[in-house]
Simulated scan of single mutants.
Amino acid sequence: MDNSDLHQIPDKFLGQIIHNLQSFPNETVNFADPQLRKSLTNIYPVFLVMYGLLVVLGTVGNVAMITYILRRRLYRDPTCAFIMNIGVCNVIMSVLLLPLSLAILLIQNWIFGSFLCYFVPMLQNLRQDEKPLSELQLQDNLLLHRPHLAHKCYEGYPREDGIT
């Protein structure tokens, strides 16, 4: 690479290249192995505990909700079927996506292959699209346990029978 090639690289990419070279001054580093981010060296156990709690509590809570709906055969109601569907999606996301997100947070280099390089961001964006539905899920979950609060949660929303 000669000097004219360096002038063709945009400054923002040169800055990133210089930063990466300064972060790994040892040329014997094997980038096929995971490299922990230097800024997280002392505090990564905190992240492991927090993400571990999220995975366990999210999975247990959603499985409990799914089990409740299945045992009482509430899945025949469209609202409960919808809540159960969201619960299944949340279990899958908490079991698959949260550990991957933790690894991406802690590891400086990408070790997961080209497929996950494109697939993980798509999964993470699904979580953003689902957020407006989570409020509905919380309201409907409340209605499963306290049906007498139905008029308070849905004030102003048209019901299926036309009564508002």
Rank of each mutant, 00 (worst) to 15 (best):
V91M: 03
N62W: 05
N20G: 03
G58Y: 07
I9P: 03
D77V: 01
V88C: 03
N125P: 01
N3E: 15
V55Y: 04
G58T: 06
P25S: 05
L126H: 07
C89N: 02
L133M: 04
S94D: 14
C89P: 04
Y75H: 13
V49C: 05
L57F: 13
R71F: 05
H7C: 11
L138C: 15
L97V: 09
M93T: 14
H145I: 06
Y68C: 02
K152A: 08
Y44I: 03
C89V: 09
N85K: 07
K12M: 10
P25E: 03
I104P: 06
I69W: 02
Y51N: 06
I86V: 13
H7V: 09
L116D: 03
V46R: 04
V55K: 06
N30V: 00
C153M: 10
Q35A: 09
Q35M: 12
L53W: 04
L116V: 03
L70H: 02
V55T: 10
N85T: 14
D161R: 01
E27W: 14
I43E: 12
T67C: 01
S134F: 15
L144T: 01
R37A: 05
Y75D: 11
N125R: 08
D11A: 14
T67Q: 00
N90I: 07
D140W: 13
L14I: 12
K152T: 01
G58C: 08
I17G: 02
T67K: 03
S39Q: 13
N125D: 06
A150K: 15
L48E: 15
E130N: 02
M122W: 10
A32S: 10
F112P: 05
V91R: 03
L123T: 02
A103K: 11
E135S: 15
L70V: 05
R72Y: 11
S39P: 10
L21I: 02
N3W: 14
G61R: 01
N90S: 12
E155H: 09
P121K: 00
Q137K: 13
T79M: 11
N109S: 00
A81Q: 05
